[in-house]
Write a protein that binds this DNA or RNA. Structure first.
Lengths: 212, 212
DNA sequence: TAATGGTTGTGCGATAATTCACAAACGACC
DNA sequence: GGTCGTTTGTGAATTATCGCACAACCATTA
């Protein structure tokens, strides 16, 4: 039942956005939305919204719209965030700690099952019911946890090494905060988050717009 | 001398990537690179690299390649990160603190000139030579600082309000970490960073690849 | 000076993503 | 049951992005 042969990446990214709004709407007891409602709220073209969904089947009723809670459930299932998933975090510096303490992760069904670092000063530190473990134990520990998602919050020069270890430990997808392009086997999916890059793009836009 | 009429967004994003690698290469005293070298290191197609640069003029010598330090300087100038830029951070929670303590920002010529929060418990706290200020002072303080870049690390329900204030205070581009789509005037540029979204996309990819 | 090996900058076709536009479907109302 | 206003799902057109392929160019060596 792997329904979708080739879903565009931008579609997947937008699905996550839709889901966020649907959760809010559901919390506000809104029962039904139309694609034009979505456009008003998100700025994403209504046809785009419908086409995004169409990759995964039919969701709405013509003349009526979409049932909020049903759609929410189905998108969550598509993204596989309908049930808790274990995640490991490597690197317990400022950023890693911020992630560990971020309640949004739990809400979105991601459970940080273990945190690692190689700095002895950080190993053993406790935070949110979690003890920072020695990075060298990654393979051993994940053999029990079975996390297939890893979040890398280590410095650029350590990232490739850590990624290799994580992959060897069974990790299949990586969220990489280090400003470096990881070399990984084809089956492994990596997504990079780089605020420096984002800031650079923003910085570029500063002069292009002339005031008044 | 606003040379470039319409540069694709993906090009800008890649420019920031190139810059990172050039900085490293320069530090390793590499003098020259070719576009194929770039492809080997970054995985970005060599022709893509050349085309990206072509939006801004000519940079290389046929038969030779590109001078690393010169190219680095020119890309930095294009992205306007060749000289220090003041940035304000709103929201001094876990994430905001992590950013304030992140040395990479300084290295990339972004100087956090002020940090704000609305939580009395956080106001007055000091970190990295910076005192967290009351959010209501944003306009007043930025009149002196003149920052045109703001980083939003506030919860989703506060983000729109803070964005409005920041824009009123002269901010022109926003890096938004809150999981919400901000409504801003056309002249203001927003970029969103959402690890939840990234995780969701990664999560989707978990099942599509079948083992063996 | 001529020939050679290597590299750039770019026109152009290929691929991907977005948006339009409309038939088919639905509920409400008469 | 028929008509009307609304909204979906999607084929087709449009727009954006990518990557090939090649002429023009440069340094080196003979």
């Amino acid at each position: 039942m792997n329904s979708s042969p080739k879903v565009p990446m931008p579609t997947l990214e937008r699905l996550a956005t839709y889901l966020r709004y649907l959760i809010d709407l559901d919390a506000s007891h809104v029962e039904t939305i139309s694609s034009t409602d979505v456009e008003r709220q998100t700025g994403i073209n209504a046809a785009q919204f419908r086409k995004d969904l169409s990759y995964f089947g039919e969701f709405g009723k013509p003349g009526v719209g979409y049932n909020v809670s049903e759609l929410q459930g189905r998108i969550a299932r598509i993204l596989k965030i309908d049930q808790m998933q274990p995640v490991i975090v490597v690197g317990a510096g400022n950023l890693g700690s911020a992630l560990i303490g971020y309640p949004g992760l739990q809400e979105h069904k991601f459970h940080i099952a273990a945190a690692f670092d190689r700095d002895p000063a950080k190993i053993g530190r406790r935070q949110n019911d979690l003890t920072v473990l020695d990075e060298t134990l990654l393979g051993e520990v994940n053999a029990k946890i079975g996390a297939r998602i890893a979040i890398l919050c280590v410095p650029a020069n350590a990232a490739q090494h850590v990624a290799n270890d994580a992959i060897a430990a069974g990790v299949r997808v990586i969220l990489n905060f280090a400003p470096i392009i990881l070399k990984v086997p084809e089956r492994v999916v990596v997504r990079n988050v780089s605020f420096l890059q984002e800031l650079a793009v923003l910085s570029y836009h500063l002069s292009s717009e002339t005031p008044t």
